[in-house]
Design a protein around this nucleic acid. Sequence first.
DNA 1: ACCATTTGTGAATAGTACTCACAAACCCTT
DNA 2: AAGGGTTTGTGAGTACTATTCACAAATGGT
Lengths: 294, 294
Amino acid sequence: MVRDELSVLSAFLAVAEERSFTRAAKRLGVSTSAISHAMRGLEERFGVRLLARTTRSVAPTPAGEQLIARLRPALGDIRGAVDLITGLRDRPAGRVRLVVSPIAATTVLAPKLGQFARAYPDVVLDVTTDESRVDLVAAGFDAGIHFGEFIERDMITFRVSKDHRPAIVGSPRYFESHEKPVHPRDLTSHRCINFRHGSAGVYRWELDKGKQSLTVAVNGPLIVDDVEIMVRAALDGVGLAFMSEDRAAPHFASGELVRVLEDWCPPFPGFFLYYPRQRQLPAALAALIETLRL
Amino acid sequence: MVRDELSVLSAFLAVAEERSFTRAAKRLGVSTSAISHAMRGLEERFGVRLLARTTRSVAPTPAGEQLIARLRPALGDIRGAVDLITGLRDRPAGRVRLVVSPIAATTVLAPKLGQFARAYPDVVLDVTTDESRVDLVAAGFDAGIHFGEFIERDMITFRVSKDHRPAIVGSPRYFESHEKPVHPRDLTSHRCINFRHGSAGVYRWELDKGKQSLTVAVNGPLIVDDVEIMVRAALDGVGLAFMSEDRAAPHFASGELVRVLEDWCPPFPGFFLYYPRQRQLPAALAALIETLRL
DNA sequence: ACCATTTGTGAATAGTACTCACAAACCCTT
DNA sequence: AAGGGTTTGTGAGTACTATTCACAAATGGT
């Protein structure tokens, strides 16, 4: 593919308009010798003299003027076409299909949806909440939002929340009849509210302290698949629950829930928006990322 | 000067038309990965997806189609403009201003004028005969024809005649009453027809033999500035004349003129067409050079 | 004739288009 | 569901050229 002359032709127009290599060079942000080389190369390739010049004056030849007459409108059209296309980048449109962790949907996405809809009226967000680790491409999604630790390595990721911290909580009423656990192994003797993700197994509580890392399959009188039900049960004293510190925070403040094993619950990477590598980012998704990213 | 995308935009059109990277690559004479890189680079620079593709199908996106609609005519116009300009190279036109030694005008140029005019009907030859050493640029000439030895070093030269040889001639009638000179110094005792170039002084006869070089300011009853008058005078026995061997040759054959001091008149470089260095050669002048050059 | 400024040029360097050698993706066939 | 043929995608290396640098040459005003 022979390198074409669009930039050289543009330079030629600039020289002809300015009637000066020096002023054209300044306009284009290159050196005068770059212009000189380019004009010479152009004339050699065409085999026609396009500019008559001395060190005191520059003017297009008759052949040069014929070229100018045709080039100017054509280059203007191309520039217009390119500007239109790049302008689309600033007015995103179309559908974005997202799969979002339910907690992320309420804590990360929901608060920003109004702002986003107003800013980008032509974009349609198609949101599916799903806690499981979805194969984006297979399931036809453009992007997802989940905890960083659950995202495949080859995805492009953007942080959309600060680090999260889990909490093991119980109501004061629960602790009236049960001693507070001081070590994760004590949990096996406690009544714990289990959580199940769709058809997957129950959620194991992962606890870390320093270099120690324990995974506990707790037992209890309740297994739920809805976070709100879990929260309600904990408040009612049904048992201990494992949830986001953010979700429990209001109840800590009111004294309705009490936290235990806090030193075994360090923070971990929060939510990230992710999409498959090796894809030109659609403008609408880029806009969403800009809106959500920290 | 950022390299523009004319070649890349042309490639994009080719891909969109062929609906295939592979076929477009074949059409453009490059590898498929060159096309792949180019399309990716284009989309990254514009920040917009232009082509939707899998390994089985390629199609322009809506944005791509908008770009195509504007690019196609514009690129066609540019190609037309370039074709027109390069087409001028094969159909030279315009005026060529020549300053030509009168002898060269008749012996070199005149015989070829008809052929040239027929081959290049759009070229106008503006011929000025002048024996003096004209400053081409100052006097507004594009080129000149003169003896090689009179041409400035920095000119571009093309030989347009074979070597020349001068001759000192006299009529048999003249020699009836004058002994033939056997040495250049004898010339001072002869009646010689002087030649004057315009307002310059009379022409000195320059004679060489081996390493000897003599310049003789001859005397005589006649000073002319026209070669034909000089020839006529010599034929009439007015005196000796110094002229081109070629000009005198017909009269040698007929016996009307006799040559003397032949060994003092060696050949020297003939006529050359010349023009100033560092100039893009106009197509019309290039055509003339091709016609005249040996 | 001199000077300031512009264009012109050869050589070196920086930047990139393109190729190579694959990998990844896709869809048809079995 | 697996395999195969063909197309697109990609990283690294190479070939090519745009551009700069360091001048030289040219021009025209004083």
